[in-house]
Design a protein around this nucleic acid. Sequence first.
DNA 1: TCTTATACCTTAGTTTCTTATGTATAACAG
DNA 2: CTGTTATACATAAGAAACTAAGGTATAAGA
Lengths: 116, 116
Amino acid sequence: MTHPPMPLLKGTLDVLILKTLGWGPSHGYAISRWIQQTTGDELHIEEGALYPALRRLEGKGLLDASWKTTATGREAKVYTLTAAGRRQLKAEVSAWSRYVSAMTRALEARPTGAIA
Amino acid sequence: MTHPPMPLLKGTLDVLILKTLGWGPSHGYAISRWIQQTTGDELHIEEGALYPALRRLEGKGLLDASWKTTATGREAKVYTLTAAGRRQLKAEVSAWSRYVSAMTRALEARPTGAIA
DNA sequence: TCTTATACCTTAGTTTCTTATGTATAACAG
DNA sequence: CTGTTATACATAAGAAACTAAGGTATAAGA
């Protein structure tokens, strides 16, 4: 068996949502499934994290929301990236890259003499 | 000018501390400086995050602590990785790797048709 | 003597998760 | 036609782990 899904690192959900919406408008439930699928079920988005995050991003003006009827005939709140959201997406992807680089430097560092 | 230091992603400090102590015993202030230096000043460890984290790890039995006098003649609480701490270090480095892989898959994914 | 660096600690507040619960409808199985 | 699963949203309570801001104390150097 594979690992169970990992808990989210606090602060990484926003960029995942923004990235998903970078492909086009979508609604919460679909966003969550997309993230889960593209990460090979490593990341599981709890609904209690997802919906507040969407409201947060909307409140910051990064997303626009509107109720629509999906292809399957159900009501869903469809989110669209705003221009500010697109800028934020770029910034957060780049911040994530820098963070990974910094962590990698630390986790792969060789000691520079004594750590004291 | 370079970027200001990034805020820590919650959940990444423990592995940084464990990694630092993987090189040998050290005390809080030195650990913090080492992380800051090896990440090229990208990560700045707030003392309000550092000291509680050390106590947390000690409480979990991952570190042992003892007061010692440093080479510069000052009192410092020196932490040492326990056997459990070494195992945890391995586990957390590997968990971080998996997390980065998952995030990378999501952030570099191409859309698989409609996100709906 | 004043400032900076070293070295520790703590509290209050914030953010962002997890867990649990609730609503409602569509689709499908039996 | 009825029960279960999947879809789709939401919220509340609690936990975890930060930031910000303050405090203590000593050593070294200007």
